[in-house]
Simulated assay, not measured.
Amino acid sequence: MQLAESIVAHPRNADWAAELRAAGLRATSQRVAVLTYLDHNPHSDAETILRGVLETLPTVSIQAVHGIVNDLTAAQIVRRVDLADSHSAQYETRTKDNHHHVQCIECGRVEDVDCAVGHAPCLTPSDTHGMRIIETDLTFRGLCTSCERK
């Protein structure tokens, strides 16, 4: 996936240091850099995040990035997205809103899709097997316009 394709028009530009502290995590420069990068480049994997923060943090390692995204995911500041045909997990800062994804089967581009109903869960299964459903994870798969033209 090319970085330019994943840049969103209106990132949250949150006060990441404050969000980290509110979640009980130290607001390190590495965590803030990873969150800032993900805010502007959602659906990035750890390797892409590493390349994105190396200019400002030249000593950061891939192991550090993996540790950071794991900590941020556990704190629910970042959402881990595991999509079919993706070589690794992707991460985003858009959390707790039960949105879904659309993925191009050719180039792998991923975009957000808002919940069809507007509240969690936005789809109801035919049988819950006695479970209280709290979220739905749905991926639409297709061809983006660039790949369709090829």
Results as ranks from 00 to 15, higher is better:
residue 94 R to S: 14
residue 107 C to T: 11
residue 52 G to E: 14
residue 145 T to H: 11
residue 150 K to E: 04
residue 92 E to M: 12
residue 102 V to Y: 11
residue 58 P to T: 09
residue 44 S to Y: 05
residue 56 T to D: 15
residue 11 P to D: 09
residue 53 V to N: 06
residue 142 G to R: 10
residue 135 E to V: 03
residue 14 A to I: 01
residue 114 D to G: 14
residue 144 C to P: 02
residue 63 Q to E: 13
residue 148 E to L: 08
residue 84 A to C: 01
residue 84 A to Q: 05
residue 55 E to P: 04
residue 6 S to M: 02
residue 71 D to S: 06
residue 118 G to Q: 01
residue 32 V to H: 04
residue 12 R to W: 03
residue 37 Y to I: 13
residue 74 A to Q: 10
residue 98 N to M: 14
residue 114 D to K: 08
residue 141 R to Q: 12
residue 83 L to H: 12
residue 121 P to V: 03
residue 4 A to Y: 07
residue 83 L to F: 05
residue 90 Q to K: 13
residue 55 E to R: 07
residue 146 S to Y: 00
residue 88 S to G: 10
residue 145 T to F: 06
residue 30 Q to V: 12
residue 68 I to W: 03
residue 104 C to H: 08
residue 106 E to W: 01
residue 106 E to L: 02
residue 82 D to F: 09
residue 149 R to C: 03
residue 6 S to H: 05
residue 109 R to C: 03
residue 20 L to C: 04
residue 11 P to Q: 11
residue 76 Q to V: 07
residue 111 E to A: 09
residue 109 R to L: 13
residue 35 L to F: 05
residue 71 D to F: 01
residue 11 P to A: 01
residue 108 G to N: 12
residue 85 D to R: 15
residue 132 R to Y: 11
residue 134 I to A: 07
residue 6 S to G: 00
residue 23 A to H: 06
residue 61 S to L: 03
residue 100 H to F: 11
residue 8 V to L: 04
residue 40 H to T: 08
residue 119 H to P: 00
residue 51 R to D: 15
residue 43 H to G: 00
residue 48 T to L: 04
residue 36 T to I: 02
residue 139 T to V: 13
residue 30 Q to P: 00
residue 15 D to Q: 14
residue 104 C to A: 13
residue 81 V to P: 07
residue 114 D to Y: 11
residue 135 E to K: 09
residue 29 S to V: 11
residue 150 K to P: 00
residue 94 R to H: 09
residue 110 V to Y: 08
residue 4 A to C: 02
residue 123 L to H: 15
residue 59 T to S: 07
residue 104 C to E: 09
residue 5 E to I: 04
residue 112 D to L: 13
residue 94 R to N: 14
residue 38 L to I: 01
residue 102 V to Q: 15
residue 111 E to H: 09
residue 9 A to M: 05
residue 130 G to M: 02
residue 129 H to Y: 13
residue 67 G to S: 04
residue 34 V to M: 01
residue 11 P to I: 08
residue 39 D to Q: 01
residue 127 D to G: 00
residue 25 L to P: 06
residue 65 V to D: 12
residue 74 A to L: 03
residue 135 E to W: 06
residue 19 E to D: 08
residue 106 E to Q: 11
residue 123 L to E: 12
residue 82 D to N: 14
residue 25 L to T: 08
residue 93 T to M: 08
residue 97 D to A: 09
residue 37 Y to A: 05
residue 144 C to H: 04
residue 101 H to K: 14
residue 120 A to V: 12
residue 80 R to K: 08
residue 41 N to M: 02
residue 104 C to M: 04
residue 19 E to L: 07
residue 101 H to S: 12
residue 75 A to T: 04
residue 134 I to Q: 09
residue 25 L to M: 03
residue 147 C to G: 11
residue 33 A to Y: 01
residue 144 C to I: 03
residue 1 M to E: 07
residue 84 A to V: 12
residue 46 A to C: 03
residue 60 V to G: 03
residue 38 L to R: 06
residue 14 A to N: 12
residue 132 R to G: 05
residue 89 A to S: 15
residue 71 D to T: 06
residue 27 A to P: 01
residue 53 V to C: 13
residue 127 D to M: 10
residue 60 V to A: 14
residue 27 A to M: 04
residue 143 L to W: 13
residue 52 G to V: 07
residue 134 I to V: 11
residue 8 V to P: 00
residue 38 L to E: 04
residue 55 E to G: 06
residue 141 R to D: 05
residue 97 D to K: 01
residue 139 T to K: 10
residue 58 P to H: 09
residue 62 I to N: 08
residue 48 T to P: 00
residue 91 Y to F: 13
